[in-house]
Design a binder for these strands. Structure first.
Lengths: 352, 352
DNA sequence: TTGAAAGCGCTAACAA
DNA sequence: TTGTTAGCGCTTTCAA
């Protein structure tokens, strides 16, 4: 690795001298501020290039004085995964305040587009440097996101994206790939067909209206039909991420089909799904794959009831969102590789 | 989330005033520097606690002026995984120089304890704030690490640890758990016993003398014998991470045992292992699990030759090492959760 | 369109 | 044992 500058504590002043201008002018060019003759801009840019000059972030941060404020717009319900994200944000307080960063959490009903949109609109003019939002993909939400961006606030979508908006970044996984991964695991772990019957696979989702759930199911079916066509995927049960409802629907399915060999739980409601599976007495025979590592799924994995959990690292998502907002606010480049959220396969022996 | 301080750009000066001392004294207490009466220390500490004061890192960084230097002591051979780590370090140059951090890579023969120890000793007095080292667990290496630490340099071990040394931190995975994960995957993917023969599993390692390889094998055997006792693990082949040697040894094994159903490649030499497997004509029947995502393993996963790769994220390791060294040098707390390296299971559909 | 100068909050040398 | 003070490298008025 070569450092571009051997031992170059080069400063703005050096650049200013080389370009034959003052500190203030270099600063203007550096931040694309108006009021500099094009010719001067060029001279300064050249000096910067020539020395591959990097302004010292600590100095910049100190000089601007003002603290930065970020808002996290999160679902108000008792979703364990979202609570984990919030708790990891909480663990960052020391880190945040040492950098004069403030993070505020705004709880709202992210499943109601108009409520969510209103919450977002309310942030405009609130003097936020950045907003992270668990977004529902809906026209009014998209409009609100765009309004925020137009107002100069940096916006990242978290966990759930609005690709058609002008949000600056998305922090989350590719849900189609996650569904494919789940499909491959179920297919591989069930093994080749035994006997005459095809072997059936049950799917429980919160709702097919949710973009992430729909995408996961899509990916799942893709893999099963392409590679494990000896398996028959049963119609999706919509449990609304509720334990009881999921349990009842699944119990009914189990009683109807004696040859279920695989089970994919797309969203939450895990408690109910596990209960129905247990009651069926087929815990050990059915391959059960779900999402996210929570207190419950951890227990189920250790017990051997669940075979694998597809997960995204909530701590990573929380930190990545903060870092990305900060980089965007500072106008620094983002380390894409660092901020990319991976699809984790978690089994008993690699539980985090 | 509540911020401990509503809008508290509290500064050292405020603390000084509250404690009735000067800036310098607060600074001394903050950094546990000597020359302050115990009573004064108490008063200052109280003021700090009371306000949950966090010094502004940017200001501190700027004031101390001096750039920090870190050395990364890496294997000199053509190990793709290590090259990935180096390349991710390379991608950080912008980030590093904006913080006035310099990272130097020192290539050495990490497999020769005395050479490695000498390389480490050579760094003492070299004015390094921190050293990251891919360490061989050997008494002379341990001694060199301890010497560095005693000289005031922060030391983190990378990928391979020397637990008995006084290194400040280890950045890498739990290799026993990684081996267990590999074992569980092989066991689960092979499926239940078919027919009369037990089904045999081959293991290819670099050397059982390497701590990480030995630990992986240990974990692997643990799981196979406990949970998949219908599988018979064949004696470990030591391919020294070399393609040709691995290929020859494995080819011989395949010709001797017609009933090999699983293959675990513990280290490198993947090219040779894959070749032997291909030549045996049993690519599709044998469950093949290895380590790390490289150009080659990626291809093998996509082709369906390899079934899973156990991996540790090289980019994460590179960045975590830098961040941890920086935090150690600054005397800041480390975000353990953030710096922990996970054991990733990578299959075709969740390839990063 | 450009420049001069006063800080930002801390560290470290020096003085007391 | 404690305090005073001159910067660190930027940003941001305010003046020219």
């Amino acid at each position: 690795m070569k450092e571009p500058d051997p031992s170059s504590p080069l400063t703005l002043k050096d650049i200013a001298r080389q370009a034959g201008v003052s500190l203030a002018t270099v600063d203007r060019v550096l931040h694309n501020r108006p009021g500099v003759r094009p010719d001067t801009v060029r001279r300064v840019r050249e000096a910067i290039e020539r020395n591959s000059f990097q302004p010292h972030v600590a100095a910049a941060e100190l000089a601007r004085g003002r603290a930065r404020r970020f808002a996290f717009v999160m679902p108000s319900g008792p979703n364990p995964f979202m609570q984990q994200i919030e708790s990891y944000l909480g663990e960052m307080t020391g880190w945040l305040s040492a950098r004069r960063l403030a993070v505020e959490i705004v709880a709202t009903d992210v499943f109601d587009a108009s409520v969510l949109a209103a919450s977002l609109e309310a942030l405009i003019g609130g003097d936020y440097d950045g907003v992270a939002v668990v977004a529902l993909d809906h026209p009014s939400v998209r409009a609100a996101v765009n309004d925020l961006v137009d107002a100069g606030t940096k916006v990242v979508t978290l966990v759930s994206d609005v690709p058609s908006s002008r949000r600056n970044h998305y922090i989350g996984i590719d849900n189609i790939a996650a569904g494919r991964t789940a499909g491959a695991l179920v297919g591989r772990l069930v093994g080749p067909r035994t006997g005459a019957s095809p072997g059936k696979v049950a799917i429980v989702a919160g709702s097919q209206g949710l973009r992430d759930h729909a995408e996961r199911i899509f990916g799942f079916n893709q893999v099963i039909s392409a590679e494990f066509s000896h398996l028959e995927v049963l119609p999706v049960l919509e449990g609304r991420d509720e334990d009881e409802r999921s349990q009842q629907m699944l119990a009914r399915l189990f009683s109807k089909h004696a040859d279920i060999v695989g089970l994919y739980n797309v969203g939450a409601g895990t408690q109910g799904v596990a209960k129905a599976l247990g009651d069926s007495g087929r815990e050990k025979q059915v391959v059960f794959v779900g999402h996210d590592v929570t207190v419950l799924t951890r227990k189920l994995l250790l017990q051997g009831v669940m075979d694998a959990a597809i997960s995204q690292n909530p701590g990573h998502e929380a930190r990545a969102a903060v870092r990305v907002l900060l980089s965007l606010a500072r106008g620094e480049p983002i380390l894409i590789e660092q901020e990319k959220i991976r699809i984790d396969i978690v089994m008993r022996d690699n539980l985090p």
